[in-house]
Amino acid sequence: MEKMLAEKPVNVNEEGYLLEFAQWDKDIANAIAVEEKVELRDDHWKAIEWIQSEFKKDSPLSIRGIKNSGALNIKEFYELFPGGPLKKASKIAGIPKPKSCI
């Protein structure tokens, strides 16, 4: 379905995840972050960029993977995106929610 974010029409699924990464930009990220009650600061952007670069490499995202990569500190990651860090960060980064086949 179509939704207006930062005054731009984008395609999202029922839960508000972007369907086309190409439609993502920083204004849209900020708009999603407001809905998720997260205020984006430098550390958030660093996390978002790292997640996007993994997504582009088709690497599956997991908390343990992030921990092992040394790219992000897990405790901080939970503090940056309280609740479900992977879900929230993925949504703001414009990439699909981690899911199984069914």
């Binding site: 029922e14 997991s62 908390i63 479900g84 879900k87 929610k97 899911k99 199984s100 069914i102």
Partner: peptide, 16 residues
């Protein structure tokens, strides 16, 4: 599960 449910795809969740 580390995922957001035992089923994560909308149609399967609804059916199962």
């Amino acid at each position: 599960t580390p995922l957001s449910g035992a089923f994560t795809k909308p149609k399967a969740t609804a059916a199962l």
